[in-house]
Design a protein around this nucleic acid. Structure first.
Lengths: 254, 254
DNA sequence: CCAAAAGTGTTGCGGATACACCCATGG
DNA sequence: CCATGGGTGTATCCGCAACACTTTTGG
């Protein structure tokens, strides 16, 4: 074994919520194979970097790094024929940028709309082995990049429920209803602003800035502005069941 | 970039609960580097297989494949200096075998005890980026294999709470208290047999076989035997919060 | 004064834990 | 008949969803 030339690349599904829909950053291939299809940003792993550093380096060419609020590994895609020619093993990442970020991107690169998860479908909380058959999150993707976008969307959906990951989708400061819109778009089902505020407040993820946003053109009470208390990933609802004794209501203490 | 020779390997942290403690399958290195340290089973990725097929092939040499009840990707370990010499990128897996499985293993291979997660620590539900500093799950591990075991233990702990993953730890048929002991060892904190049975029964993961186990030497009521209704991974408690409207009590429908 | 949007109070449901109680067996 | 382990019934807690109601603005 092991005579075939093999390389390693990193690929990032960078997601953003904009216009009420999830979007992924992709560039259109100008050359065969898969000419005209949309590909995820990424590239060859360098000799002196691990995959995390590599994906950040490669993204810096497409997106202002300060705008990438969160990034995490999705998994390895390693089908021997996933790309034609030299074998390439890909480590896929999920990246998130806030909804108000609109970085300058190269001319061949654009934000492409991603279908939200079907409301009735079963969510797979991590991208692996068994993947249920359902409409792909994106069409016209190159190679196996569509599957990576599927995994990214599913991971985001799952983590929004039990972590503070919303910080990576929201602007620095926001109103509750703006935040609600982000959750609706990412989850693909209605979310009540009332209950969203309560859940996030109880978990101490949200704090008011004290300022208020001006009302819209048709009037209405001005909305208070909030911010996330932390802007790094934190698990807020570990142990869905089978909590340690005595830890009745509250989640695990960090 | 990319002139350094680079290879790809797969590594498996195969866990089992035995004697009230988690154990991992490892072999003792007879040669430098890291002579005498314990290493996870695995090896080079073949030209015509993806990482999933590869890890199963490599495990077949150590463990009877029929005994591996579940396997899933943990992530990529890619530090340029994670092993000396030729660069090796590793895809790590979590494997689980039932507690009653005791496969014949090569003479240099053994089940080594893994520390259960500290009860008060924060569980990281997936192995990635930020890993909290705490006592390692295993000592004397070769290279970065200790970090892989940490990730495997954490992944198992997290998934036991919101999936049916217990099927991969338990024998075909078992008593509730035997199952409880498995959960206690894997989670590292007390679990009530009463509540464990109720939770798993309500989720329709457990069914009685009709048979009973003979009582122990000191008597007592004979325990009923149960089995898992499914022996493939199923998410039972998706959407910890922010469920779609109308889905009040019940979990997502498959 | 009315419409519109935001935020709070309150109710009710349902899962989960905790604990008391009953059951079945060996000695 | 007593000790031991297994299983069930029941009270309570608490998070969350649903919805009514109050607050604050613009016209």
């Amino acid at each position: 074994m092991g005579t075939r030339q093999t390389g390693h690349e990193v690929l990032a599904a960078v997601l953003r919520i904009s216009g009420g829909h999830p979007q992924v950053l992709a560039w259109q291939r100008a050359r065969d194979p898969d000419r005209g299809c949309w590909a995820l940003p990424g590239g060859r792993l360098g000799d002196d970097e691990d995959v995390e550093r590599s994906v950040l380096r490669q993204l810096a060419e497409k997106v202002d790094l300060r705008e990438v609020a969160h990034i995490e590994q999705l998994g390895v895609f390693s089908d021997p024929d996933r790309v034609p020619g030299t074998r390439l093993i890909a480590t896929a990442f999920l990246g998130l940028v806030p909804s108000d970020a609109d970085p300058l991107v190269p001319p061949d690169t654009a934000w492409r709309r991603v279908a939200p998860g079907p409301a009735g479908a079963d969510p797979a909380p991590d991208g692996q082995l068994v993947r249920t058959a359902r409409p792909p999150a994106i069409s016209g993707a190159a190679f196996d990049h569509g599957a990576i976008v599927d995994a990214a969307r599913d991971r985001l959906r799952a983590k929004l429920s039990y972590t503070n990951l919303g910080f990576a989708l929201a602007p620095r400061e926001f109103t509750i209803s703006a935040l609600r819109d982000l959750y609706v778009a990412a989850l693909g089902h209605p979310v009540s602003a009332t209950n969203l505020q309560r859940v996030l407040t109880r978990r101490a993820l949200l704090e008011p800035t004290g300022a208020v946003a001006p009302p819209g053109p048709s009037g209405g009470r001005p909305a208070a502005l909030f911010r996330f208390t932390a802007r790094t990933l934190r698990v807020t609802d570990a142990f869905a069941v089978l909590k340690p004794p005595g830890e009745h209501g509250r989640g695990a203490v960090p």
